[in-house]
């Protein structure tokens, strides 16, 4: 009986040994969040795939790809796949050697090679598919982040706010510039407030991009006000020797908004003319 037949004929036995161990290691950190039923179900599916690929003398690529996608979607580590194949390899070799009672080294190598030959293509395919899926998820997330990363919010006629939260890298700086310019034109903005309260570090690269954006906004005939400059950021900007004097800066969005109202010749008037109401409106849109 050849090796393949031997493993196939006894696949129930090998799989039952395998299922016991599979996932114990790679899913250790996840065990509190994944139900045992889920692991059992995935293990059985995994075993079916391995066995059927052996039966059909080659992997059913579609099944493999679907399985890899499932693992990614569950958020399970790649180790789950490698562990599974590794244990399968070990259990099969053990089983075959037990059966044949081999002590002979050549025989042993023959068994090893035979099993490797069959497991390795499975591994390659699963690995490629897993990382392709993963990359796909990353690029989708990147897109989603991009949509969030430079929003332009028209708060009233002629006044727009761009709140920036998080690190600004080259890609994001480009996006800020594009959104700013197209937004200023589209919304017929006179004043745009760029709020950097949520930007952790303002280095010369970030400052340079902000200066360029403000300059471009100015060329479109609008005014850019930089707001949300935290005290420590103000200090580092001064230390860096960056000159922000060409355009208005304000410590808070609220103060910037007041300036924007002045520039656009607007006033917030409350119905019963109480000053507190104006304050309340300003408080609602700004934070200090």
């Amino acid at each position: 009986m050849n090796l393949k037949e031997l493993v196939l004929e006894n696949s129930d036995e090998i799989v039952s040994r395998w299922v016991e161990k599979q996932g114990n290691h790679s899913l250790q950190d996840y065990s509190s969040t994944i139900s045992n039923d889920m692991i059992k179900q995935m293990n059985h599916e995994f075993a079916d795939i391995i066995i059927s690929s052996l039966k059909e003398g080659g992997a059913n690529l579609e099944n493999l790809d679907d399985f890899a996608e499932k693992v990614v979607n569950l958020g399970w580590p790649f180790g789950y796949i490698t562990e599974g194949l590794q244990i399968f390899r070990t259990e099969s070799i053990k089983f075959v050697l037990d059966q044949q009672g081999t002590e002979n080294k050549e025989e042993f190598i023959y068994v090893m090679d035979g099993i490797n030959e069959w497991i390795d293509p499975l591994k390659t395919r699963l690995m490629n598919q897993y990382s392709a899926n993963w990359n796909n998820i990353i690029s989708l997330q990147k897109l989603a982040l991009e949509e969030l990363s430079a929003p332009l919010i028209p708060v009233m006629d002629e006044i727009t706010v761009m709140p920036l939260v998080g690190t600004i890298d080259t890609d994001r700086a480009k996006l800020i510039m594009e959104n700013l310019l197209s937004g200023v034109v589209k919304n017929r903005t006179d004043v745009v407030l760029i709020d950097i309260t949520g930007v952790p570090v303002v280095d010369t690269m970030v400052a340079h991009h902000i200066i360029q954006a403000a300059e471009a906004v100015r060329l479109l005939g609008a005014t850019c006000i930089l707001v949300g400059i935290r005290p420590e950021i103000a200090q580092t900007i001064v230390n860096l020797g960056i000159d922000l004097s060409q355009f208005p800066t304000k410590s808070s969005l609220k103060k910037g908004f007041e300036t924007a109202l002045e520039i656009t010749d607007k006033q917030i008037v409350s119905n019963d003319d109480k000053k507190e109401d104006v304050e309340e409106i300003l408080d609602a849109i700004g934070k200090e």
Binding site: V201, V202, D203, M205, E232, I233, Q235, T236, L240
Partner: peptide
Amino acid sequence: SVDQARIATAISE
């Protein structure tokens, strides 16, 4: 906090 910002900015540069 100001020195932390200075250090982070220097590293960034």
